[in-house]
Simulated assay, not measured.
Amino acid sequence: MSRAMPRVLVVELGGPDPRAVALGRVLRDEGMEVVHAGPLDTTEQVLRIAEQEDPDAVGVLGGELRATLKDVRVFYLDAPADPASGVFETPEEAAEWLRGGRSHTSGTPSDRVR
Rank of each mutant, 00 (worst) to 15 (best):
S2R: 00
S2M: 02
S2I: 01
R3K: 04
R3T: 01
M5L: 10
P6L: 13
V10D: 02
V10P: 02
V10N: 03
E12K: 11
L13Q: 07
L13Y: 07
G14K: 13
D17Q: 14
P18H: 14
P18R: 15
L23G: 09
L23N: 10
L23T: 15
G24I: 04
R25F: 08
L27A: 12
E30Y: 05
E30D: 01
G31M: 00
E33R: 04
V35A: 05
A37P: 07
G38I: 13
G38K: 12
P39D: 15
D41M: 08
T43N: 11
T43A: 11
T43I: 14
E44N: 08
V46L: 12
V46Y: 10
L47M: 15
R48Y: 14
R48P: 11
I49R: 12
I49C: 10
A50L: 14
E51I: 11
E53L: 09
P55C: 02
P55Y: 03
A57T: 14
G59M: 11
G59K: 09
G59Q: 11
V60P: 08
L61R: 12
L61I: 15
G62S: 15
G62H: 13
G62I: 09
G63V: 13
G63P: 12
G63T: 14
L65A: 14
R66L: 03
A67G: 00
A67I: 01
T68W: 08
D71P: 04
V72H: 11
R73T: 13
V74P: 00
V74S: 02
V74D: 01
Y76K: 10
Y76G: 08
Y76L: 11
L77S: 08
D78Y: 14
A79K: 06
A79Q: 07
A79W: 07
A79I: 05
P83W: 05
P83Y: 05
A84T: 15
A84S: 12
S85V: 09
G86V: 06
V87L: 02
V87P: 06
T90P: 01
P91Y: 02
P91R: 04
E92N: 02
E92L: 04
A94V: 01
A94S: 00
E96G: 01
E96T: 03
W97C: 07
W97H: 14
W97R: 14
L98P: 02
R99Y: 04
G100M: 04
G101Q: 06
R102N: 04
S103E: 03
H104A: 06
H104G: 01
H104D: 03
S106P: 02
S106M: 06
S106K: 09
G107R: 06
P109F: 03
S110F: 10
S110D: 12
S110K: 08
D111Q: 07
D111P: 10
R112G: 05
R114A: 00
R114W: 01
